[in-house]
């Protein structure tokens, strides 16, 4: 029996979460959603995950803060974290890399490229 890959998507846009949910579930992934970094940490405290996909610009706790807190914790510190963002600056990309992000994906996302990236980091 195959266990599906569990993904947590973190984005303050309900429309973007819906797009991601459709793209990922239709490719066989199990998807949970959080609307900012705080909600993501609350979910991660009591759930298992294989890959986190997070936006950068979010209220309460942004994507950088989320990555730093996950990497600084114990429960999910080795889990891959993909940043999915409209940001295009090298400064922010490098900041995400230094914080411990696994990869950087530019919006608007392409479903095939996104799914390939998730499969590659989730193994």
């Amino acid at each position: 029996m195959t266990i599906s890959t569990r993904i947590l998507t973190v984005d303050d846009s309900a429309s973007m979460r819906a797009l991601l949910n459709h793209a990922l579930t239709s490719n066989g992934f199990e998807v949970a959603q959080a609307d900012d970094g705080v909600a993501a940490l609350e979910w991660l405290a009591v759930n298992e995950v294989d890959v986190v996909i997070t936006d950068i610009n979010m209220p309460r706790l942004d994507g950088f803060g989320l990555i730093e807190q996950v990497r600084g914790g114990t429960r999910h510190r080795d889990r891959p974290i993909l940043v999915l963002t409209t940001e295009s600056s090298d400064e922010k990309k490098n900041r995400a890399r230094r914080a411990g992000a696994t990869g950087w994906i530019v919006k608007p996302f392409d479903t095939e490229k996104l799914v390939a990236a998730v499969r590659r980091v989730a193994h």
Binding site: T102, W104, V106, P108, F109, D110, K113
Partner: peptide, 12 residues
């Protein structure tokens, strides 16, 4: 629909 640069992925 297919913008060449759309959704570019960079793994660190």
């Amino acid at each position: 629909r297919a913008v060449p640069s759309r959704g570019e992925v960079e793994l660190f």
